[in-house]
Amino acid sequence: MDEQNLTPIPSQEVRQWAMFCHLAALAGLVFPFGNLLGPLIVWQLKRELDPFIDEQGKEALNFQITVSIAMLVCMLLMVVVIGFLLLPLICLAALVLAIIGGIKANEGKAYRYPLCWRLVK
């Protein structure tokens, strides 16, 4: 049991799959739209295994949808130059937050991304 909120800590396998939901976004470094497809595929394959995986998979997917929308807006803002400055910041923040989310999920703690538009309920 976790002392802070008295909820049982998920098993190692569950924590590992929840971590993979967050870190699957790194597939975007290799494949176009991998940041969306990675979390979506892991979440769809393992969401029935445990509610913790389902929750963290939705959180990771929602964050990557938010990041993708922000990146599209930055590309449009490249017309007025500000997009060139914002795009690297968004990419760096997305990378750092996905890694933090993976670490927290591996610790068995539910992670909620800041400034995330939660479309998938």
Score class of each variant (00 low, 15 high):
I103S: 01
A70G: 08
E48W: 02
R15H: 13
I99F: 02
W43D: 08
F52I: 01
G38H: 03
L95M: 13
V79F: 07
I53V: 15
L76K: 07
P32H: 10
A24M: 03
A98C: 13
C74P: 09
L23Y: 05
Q12G: 03
L72Y: 01
Y111P: 02
L95S: 12
L92T: 09
I99T: 09
C74Y: 11
L61R: 01
L29S: 03
D2T: 05
W17H: 08
M78L: 07
V80M: 05
A25E: 13
N62S: 12
G34T: 02
D50M: 03
D2C: 04
A25H: 09
C21D: 06
E55S: 04
M19R: 00
Y113R: 04
V81M: 11
Q64S: 06
L45P: 07
Q16M: 13
I99Y: 05
V30Y: 00
G108I: 07
G38E: 10
L86V: 14
A93Y: 15
G102F: 14
L37P: 02
L86P: 12
G108F: 01
C21S: 14
I65P: 02
L23V: 13
I53Y: 14
W117C: 11
F20P: 04
H22W: 03
Q16G: 07
R15W: 09
P51M: 01
W117T: 14
L76S: 07
L61S: 01
E107Q: 10
F84M: 11
V79Y: 00
A98F: 11
S68V: 15
L6K: 03
A110K: 14
L36S: 12
N5C: 01
N5W: 02
P51N: 01
A27V: 13
V96L: 13
D50V: 14
E55L: 10
F84Q: 03
L85Y: 00
M19P: 00
W17P: 02
T66S: 01
F33L: 07
P39F: 12
T66Q: 01
V30G: 01
L77H: 11
L97E: 15
G38N: 09
E59D: 14
G102C: 09
P88C: 11
T7R: 00
P32D: 09
M19E: 07
T66G: 01
I9Y: 03
C21W: 12
P51H: 00
C91H: 15
E107M: 14
L77V: 08
L29A: 15
K58F: 02
V96E: 09
I9W: 01
K104D: 12
R15D: 13
E13G: 07
A105P: 11
V80G: 04
L77K: 05
Q56S: 15
P39H: 04
W117F: 15
G38V: 05
V79R: 04
T7Y: 03
Q64C: 08
V14A: 06
V42D: 00
